[in-house]
Design a binder for these strands. Structure first.
Length: 306
DNA sequence: AACCAGGACACAA
DNA sequence: TTGTGTCATGGT
């Protein structure tokens, strides 16, 4: 664990990397705590505040306290992943070629499993902007303060399963999560007690890992696959949400109203070992075309009435 | 101002 | 196995 002992602690580090679109990646609905501040993105990874900016040839990272070991960030951003190798595993079809052209440099992150899972438990029938709000309130009320540079507003970590397991349902509802509150609380308990071991998911095959997550209340196939893909290192997981359902019907079923089950089964054999990456490209491309990517509260694309 | 949102669940048939 | 109503909340 002392592999980087030769490095001096620093507040800033530059990581050379090609084909990495930070903005697309951080706003593509896989993580919910990133905020754009000027030309940079600010967020919290684990218990650290980070500011990221993306010059053409890499990513510059700034933290609040000097660091020598940056592996946590390399891992989160998946900087050692060869995008070309991933994309070469895609089926060579027109829909994917188009999505690749529309979202060059889109990546998958490797998030904390509990944060990702809990966030997606809160996501059901919620718009992404609302998920961000709910997660934000959850963190500020039950998370722990993290160190930030002078002049930056205080921020908190994502609350642990142990913490959320002992928060009352009413206090959770006060974050605006509605009927999802009992799901989050009960799932937090099962994770906190070790009944479900999130750390083991990466070692299991996809079906076994999914079966584990499906034991959690409020976690169905879609949310399980989100946690598996965005956090648990299962590259073949393929979350089918309303966007992907509509998109796949259009692109692969000639617009026919095929059932969700049929679309799921199609996705299981068609997209291959990197199906999850394919999903993210199709999802982000579709949302981008619909003008839904940069949206936040108060964004109305100039349609506000006088 | 209605409509609907990165679903899950219990309950039909 | 596949289809329907229900569950809170608030942005658009």
């Amino acid at each position: 664990m002392a592999a980087t002992s030769t490095e001096k602690p620093a507040l800033e580090k530059f990581f050379p990397v090609a084909d990495y679109d930070l903005a697309a990646t951080l706003s593509s609905g896989q993580a919910f705590r990133w905020h754009k501040g000027g030309d940079a993105w600010e967020g919290v990874i684990g218990r650290r505040w980070v500011r990221l900016s993306g010059p053409a040839d890499g990513i510059r990272a700034t933290v609040a306290e000097p660091l020598a070991d940056w592996r946590w960030l390399i891992d989160y951003l998946q900087l050692t992943t060869s995008l070309a190798a991933v994309l070469s595993a895609f089926p060579n079809d027109e829909p994917l070629r188009r999505a690749l052209k529309e979202c060059p440099g889109l990546r998958l992150l490797r998030q904390d499993v509990w944060e990702c899972l809990a966030s997606f438990i809160l996501s059901s029938t919620k718009q992404i902007v609302q998920i961000r709000q709910i997660v934000g309130r959850l963190c500020e009320r039950f998370g722990e303060r993290v160190a930030v540079p002078a002049g930056v507003e205080p921020l908190c970590s994502f609350p642990s399963a142990e913490r959320l397991a002992v928060v009352s349902e009413g206090d959770l509802r006060a974050c605006g999560m509605g009927f999802r509150a009992p799901y989050l609380r009960a799932s937090a308990r099962m994770v906190a007690t070790g009944e479900i071991k999130l750390g083991e998911l990466a070692k299991l095959d996809l079906d076994a890992a999914r079966a584990e997550l499906l034991r959690l209340p409020g976690v169905g196939r879609k949310i399980a696959d989100c946690a598996l893909l965005f956090a648990a290192g299962q590259p073949a997981a393929f979350p089918v949400d309303t966007w992907i359902l509509k998109t796949l019907r259009q692109l692969y079923f000639a617009g026919r109203e095929v059932s969700p089950g049929e679309v799921v089964r199609f996705s299981e054999h068609y997209f291959g070992p990197q199906a999850g990456y394919a999903q993210q490209y199709l999802f982000h491309a579709a949302r981008q075309r619909a003008g839904r990517v940069g949206e936040g509260p108060g964004t109305d694309w100039g349609k506000r009435r006088a």
